[in-house]
Design a binder for these strands. Structure first.
Lengths: 281, 281
DNA sequence: TTGTGTGAAATCATTCACAGCG
DNA sequence: CGCTGTGAATGATTTCACACAA
């Protein structure tokens, strides 16, 4: 954090690690599926497999919430669904607005996963007058002029920004001024917000770039294979040919594709996760 | 990274931490913006601000790539753009396919951020025969029957899954069998893939749930404010009323909204990030 | 003098491994 | 006896703080 205040040790207890919070929705989804199949109890091993994590991590995560399991037996599915829902704040109904009803905004409006949890799309907002009134996902698109009143009338505290990058900060400012304190940003920009406002960012292009990084490494390994079955088409440098270093720096790390070797070879990844690409701020 | 096999210390060197890899695209975007404004050099402080991280982190990140800066001056923008692009594998051209051309798939197809980096949408694929041949974002939608030949003919190694959850695993299996080794999954399911295949997951509903968690906490603080200006509408429990615990467990953590207090009060978070919600596997 | 590059320290997260409850 | 809950060990990431190059 921004040195913000060097807060004390987070008041001891009641402090659930962010990494754990980020996994709770995963567990919740797996549990919901079990619940629908009327499965009464699960072991940490089973649930972990369904959620795609390992059981030690899952048990540790749950230990932050309390002792909701039964030793020698496992966890009561219904009970755990409720506890996690409550912890995440999903026993409340959260009205959200989506600003920017282009392709992505429309997709979000139609996305079923919102309503199935505690989220309700209170309004769709777009700056284009031609869009105003048009029904999208059963809701008439409202004009940006009404943004403030929509926020206040519906008690909205969560906003989703799906506008072009250029409009995002301005929309963000208006949302915040009107009372929104959590923002999910799909626009490829860094938003600046006052203290107390949370921003999470989803960036499709970033996700692909991270995949490309790992993909690139795979090309430089494969000890005894006939060369990669698929791969990038052209290896030509793209915009300009490698600009020369300002003053010919060390450049110790030449790192051609063949230099990698061991990093990703052999049994690369198990079902475990590492670092993500969606982040606050 | 996926640690795969308790590998040794990642071969020493050539091992860029995952957390760093995940931030490189961020730096790249900020640098690209500077480049377009013809800014010749930046300091770590300036670039860090533009990317939304702190400068110590940025310098440490860059130190894994090599020494590309000039002490007392800063970094050459063009040179750094090139170095990061190369490190991420963006000096190559990556053909991708998008499977599932619903609202989201269409939004992705139209998303400009792909082409602007090294990504090229090689094909759009959908299982609905009614969609076949329809132009979306300037490309005719192809039928799922042709998936394998499309992958092979175009040398595709990265696939994007935007199908309903029920179809995702099957699509994934076919992509992998055809040679795809990196998958970006938008379907709300845990995909299982063989070793050597990377999966990244983007889940909109999970992002909102994480925001809701933090939003909920904010309600329980605000020392001297007139109560939150906006918030959840109904506080009623949602599906069933709190299921009783199997055998009445400890339930020490009652955690009503008012119990939080200090956690988010005061200067909560600065522009610094914590934990994300998009993860591999 | 300025701002990079980096060891060392501090923090956070994951994994291990096992005591002990049902 | 099986499986949870959790201290302790390990590993990864962030932050500090400062030597040193330009």
């Amino acid at each position: 954090m921004a040195t913000g205040r060097t807060h004390r040790p987070a008041t001891r207890s009641r402090g659930i690690p962010e990494a754990t919070v980020a996994r709770l929705p995963l567990y919740l989804r797996a549990l919901t599926a079990l619940s629908e199949r009327s499965v009464p109890t699960v072991s940490s091993e089973e649930l972990a497999a369904a959620a795609g994590v390992n059981s030690a991590k899952l048990r540790k995560d749950f230990s932050y919430l309390g002792s909701y399991g039964t030793r020698g037996v496992g966890y009561d599915v219904e009970y755990l669904v409720y506890q996690i829902s409550r912890e995440l704040g999903l026993t409340q109904d959260w009205p959200v607005v989506i600003v920017g009803i282009g392709n992505l905004g429309a997709a979000l409006a139609n996305y079923g996963g919102f309503a199935s949890r505690g989220f309700r799309v209170a309004a769709l907002i777009d700056a284009d007058p031609a869009m105003t009134g048009k029904p999208v996902a059963g809701l008439p698109v409202r004009h940006t002029d009404d943004l403030e009143s929509i926020i206040r009338d519906n008690g909205v505290s969560i906003g989703v920004i799906a506008t072009p990058a250029g409009a995002a900060q301005q929309v963000c400012d208006r949302l915040v001024a009107a009372g929104v304190t959590s923002i999910l940003n799909f626009a490829p920009t860094v938003l600046s917000v006052p203290d107390g406002v949370d921003v999470r960012k989803v960036d499709l292009s970033i996700e692909l770039q991270i995949l490309a990084f790992h993909e690139q490494r795979k090309a430089g390994e494969e000890p005894g294979r006939p060369a990669a079955p698929a791969g990038p088409v052209a290896a030509a440098a793209r915009p300009a040919a490698a600009p020369a270093a300002p003053t010919a720096p060390t450049t110790s790390a030449t790192g051609s594709a063949a230099a990698v070797t061991a990093a990703t070879a052999g049994g690369r990844k198990g079902p475990e996760g590492d670092v993500p690409a969606v982040m606050p701020a």
